[in-house]
Design a protein around this nucleic acid. Structure first.
Lengths: 233, 233
DNA sequence: ACCTGAACACCGTTCAAGT
DNA sequence: ACCTGAACACCGTTCAAGT
């Protein structure tokens, strides 16, 4: 009673289905075999092992994400839009984020946005190392935010951060601040706000950081490079 | 040949040792029992199950981290210093980061820095919602960066991001940029640069984002709020 | 070339039984 | 109150054997 010939594609598709439904941690070789109606060992012949099966899944899902097109008038706005869109796309595939993280493949998350970022950063007038820094800073920002968000929704209010020790004093001095910190985070708003600030800061600063000379206007004022004037105006 | 009475403390200490040595994923109940010279089932009596054992370990490790003291002259510099120090502390306990993430306890990572951040953000002149936004943006930035870094070092150059498709054109137009992107990331430098830019951007912008009026000087210039003048000078 | 069942070496957890 | 061994229901992977 042998079933129709099992293919690698079939295995990957079934695995993707299972992951989409219940997440990667629930994908077992035995369960997958049951789903496919084959012996567990057949799967090994087609995909090697669980590790490389998940690798293949990551690759396939990233490819499906597609490239990201910037929107907006200024380069800064367009960079922000790429970040916002990439975040949305990644959160639409929460299991991809988990898989990518568990398997040390964060780079893969960056892929859909990289080309657009490189283009926009150059459009903003940045070159060389400085341009690369901005590309990477934005990539890390998006990936980091998505990881933290994923992680938080995994544990919906486990410990409601009970009885903050600093709460009493802050509540007295700035009740609005205390109340705001007690409220749950609104991730979308926090991300938009953060990425705008980051991009504004990145485009404003020479970002020299010791090595090489700043490629910007080259002013030396400011305590330690933290508060400088915006770039190009 | 019963050993001396087993205590919960003893179990936690041995578990912490194992985690410190080989990471949380290598902590098995059976292995822990072997280390302690007891039956597996004894451990269950003291800590319930693996889940709550790891919970307790997280709590204990976070407590050991201790509070973070800001350094620097300006509020911005002090906020940056808190971020830099928290990152260092967390990276010194890589397994804590992994555990916290796997178990949806990211909030816990923020704890050592929260008090200092609240204080410094207020010293920078921010109040209410705006102050809370900055505190959280910095926390997310640190946690996100640490998660991404951890993830990357887990897979040391797995796929060297082979043959970037955008590579050819970028290499022609801006070889220095292409070279910079081909180089491995220097995480410490990237983090310092990012957090400085983020803080500069956050302190510069009213960060209104639709709800309520901006509490800053309230200028309305700039394309979409991305490039505004720095705060307070 | 592709599929199979049996077996190995693990897991976390429960439970009835001991003292 | 604390500890125990046996057992249950899982894992991923290997291997010799089939066609």
């Amino acid at each position: 009673m042998a079933r129709a010939a099992l293919t690698r594609e079939e295995v990957l598709a079934a695995a993707a289905d299972l992951v989409r439904r219940d997440g990667p941690q629930s994908l077992t070789m035995r369960g997958l075999a049951a789903e496919l109606g084959t012996a567990v060992t057949s799967i090994y012949w087609h995909v090697g092992n669980r590790e490389s099966l998940l690798d293949a899944l990551v690759e396939r899902t990233v490819a499906e994400l597609g490239a990201i097109r910037p929107a907006g008038r200024t380069p800064a706005a367009r960079i922000v839009s790429v970040a916002v869109t990439l975040r949305r796309r990644l959160l639409d595939h929460p299991h991809l984020v988990a898989m990518v993280h568990e398997r040390g493949l964060t780079e893969r998350m960056f892929l859909p946005a990289r080309r657009a970022l490189v283009h926009e950063v150059r459009a903003a007038g940045l070159r060389g190392t400085r341009a690369a820094d901005v590309v990477r800073a934005v990539q890390f920002q998006v990936a980091g935010h998505v990881l933290v968000e994923r992680d938080r929704e995994r544990a919906p209010a486990r410990h409601p951060v009970e009885e903050e020790p600093w709460g009493a004093r802050t509540a007295r001095e700035d009740p609005a601040l205390a109340r705001a910190l007690a409220r749950p985070v609104a991730p979308e708003r926090l991300f938009a706000l953060s990425v705008k600030a980051l991009v504004a800061g990145l485009l404003a600063e020479p970002a020299g950081e010791g090595r090489g000379r700043p490629s910007g206007p080259g002013r030396e004022s400011g305590a330690n490079g933290v508060s400088r004037a915006p770039y190009s105006h």
